[in-house]
Design a binder for these strands. Structure first.
Lengths: 112, 112
DNA sequence: ACCTTCATTCGACAATCAACGAACATCGAA
DNA sequence: TTCGATGTTCGTTGATTGTCGAATGAAGGT
């Protein structure tokens, strides 16, 4: 378990973010995090193996969409809403609104 | 040259559109078409082979982002702005604004 | 008819991706 | 220190992607 690396706000690029959000599961994860609440890895329920979920979280993290924090053996993930809104004004709002309307990634939920 | 097929507005999905727009060249093409103006294939200048450009235009068309019209041997392409705005309110506006600010796909231009 | 122009399609290639199970590493608790 | 829980990494597999050049198909002009 290495230190997760996060790109600087200035390193966040539009094509990369769009690629990260072009997957229904990742879009579902982002929807789940849209309330700004930090979530534990263990809360996340998605219809994929845990290694696949780890991969998706890494893609989101590498794109600068989420931030991961470690506490002991557990990970907590959070949407980088402020950075994203600064970098891409109105984008997340529009995206989240559409994703909710179409229920994209609705099979991603949170337990607990 | 077969009849180009376009998805119905209801068939346009967010993940597909985001995937289509996650490529700098395609984003550049969309920026070029953002004024609503119809453009001839021959006007489009992008740093790729013509077969590659044709491929990118097909990806955009299949995702429902653009509309292609044939007139004789020539093709004209246009952004499906109304359909996109109906389906995804505010999304294109936010996207185009950011793409312009970052000059994503700036190497895609129009001659004539 | 023939040739030119224009755009798509084909075939090939290397690269990337989503997905899985298994192995590994790390930390807290027993 | 051994164990269990947690998350990452590895190796693989099948599918998709971006790219090119060459071949193909469709009009239009000569």
């Amino acid at each position: 378990m290495r230190d997760p690396q996060h790109p600087d706000p200035s390193e966040i690029t539009l094509p990369r973010v769009l690629a990260a959000l072009s997957d229904p599961i990742r879009l579902g994860l982002v929807r789940l995090l849209a309330d700004g609440q930090e979530r534990g890895w263990g809360e996340l329920r998605a219809p994929v193996a845990k290694s696949t979920l780890s991969h998706h979280l890494k893609v989101l993290r590498d794109a600068g969409v989420t931030q991961t924090r470690q506490e002991g053996t557990r990970c907590f993930v959070q949407l980088r809403r402020t950075d994203l809104d600064t970098r891409f004004p109105q984008l997340m709002a529009a995206l989240l609104s559409v994703a909710a309307a179409d229920d994209i990634g609705g099979d991603v939920t949170a337990a607990r």
